[in-house]
């Protein structure tokens, strides 16, 4: 496809001449991309917020009584060899009681009448970030449960499942919204270019009779589609940034949690670029389907 300087001039003339149709398309595309960017903003922040949780996640392995230091060391060694394990800490029953007493120092009556320490020795296992998924953890606990000397394993099964369902829910809903809106934007560009084409049928017919190639006729429409899409992308970028700024400055005083919201810098490039690409895609489909 040859894009001569004159193709850009023809596109600019048409953008000016048909400014109301074009403006309407730009605003429609901007609205669509705004919804997408809000969805991306939510997904980005959910991801950032939940991203630090795996570091705090730990498995507690309770050991059988009187296991002996040698067997405990062997168990620690075996656990450290596992790929998903980042760190293993041995917590003797006395230390566990000390920690418990520190935690419940305002409720000392709980320990009254206790002659001996009922807590078992335990191991605290921290996992590598990529291993903290419900399936991975379930497999690991199964393996550890079969090891000699292990009495019981405790981990936040419900918390972990909830965390993952939130993440996958955000991802599924986000992807569905993005897919529908992307198709909508392509359709808007497709329809706009088709209308522009039909409004210039007479001119195009004259171009053809003068010897214009299909590429010469198509190029201005593809440029126009790209410009409309990119303009929509830029307006959506400005809108989403204003929205972010308002939420950050005005609403965070009411809901303090909102002060932690992050704005992904990638959006500065992503929105105009995706607008451009979607606009070009719609225009290419439109001029490809037209008979002339």
């Amino acid at each position: 496809m040859s894009m001569s300087p004159y193709s850009f001039r023809l596109a600019a003339q048409s953008l000016h001449r048909e400014k109301w149709i074009n403006l309407l398309s730009v605003l429609t595309i901007a609205s669509g991309l705004l919804v997408i960017s809000v969805a991306l903003l939510v997904a980005y922040n959910v991801n950032a917020a939940t991203g630090k949780l795996p570091e705090k996640f730990a498995l507690t392995v309770y050991l059988n009584d009187n296991l002996g230091r040698e067997k405990i060391d062997a168990l620690i060694g075996a656990l450290k060899k596992k790929q998903s394990v980042a760190q293993v800490r041995f917590i003797p029953k006395d230390e566990a009681m000390k920690e418990l007493k520190t935690m419940l120092k305002n409720a000392n009556y709980v320990f009254e009448g206790l002659d001996e320490n009922p807590l078992p020795d335990s191991l605290e296992i921290r996992l590598k970030r990529e291993a903290v998924s419900p399936e991975e953890v379930k497999k690991l606990t199964g393996d550890i449960g079969r090891m000699q000397g292990v009495a019981e394993i405790d981990y936040g099964e419900k918390f972990l499942a909830a965390l993952h369902s939130v993440k996958s829910g955000v991802r599924t809903v986000g992807l569905s919204i993005i897919t529908i809106i992307v198709a909508g934007i392509i359709f808007v560009c497709y329809s706009t270019v088709k209308i522009l084409f039909y409004r210039r049928t007479e001119e195009i017919e004259t171009f053809k009779l003068l010897g214009a190639t299909r590429a010469f006729i198509r190029a201005p429409f593809i440029i126009e589609g790209g410009v409309i899409g990119m303009a929509g992308g830029l307006i959506s970028l400005m809108s989403v940034y204003v929205l972010y700024y308002v939420v950050l400055t005005r609403m965070s005083s009411v809901v303090p949690l909102l002060s932690n919201i992050l704005f992904p810098l990638d959006l500065f490039l992503l929105l105009p670029l995706s607008g451009l690409l979607l606009g070009v895609a719609g225009a290419v489909i439109a001029v490809g389907r037209l008979r002339y």
Partner: peptide, 11 residues
């Protein structure tokens, strides 16, 4: 000029 522009001639 259109007859020349479609031929890609310089301005």
């Amino acid at each position: 000029a259109m007859a020349l522009r479609i031929r890609g001639m310089g301005e």
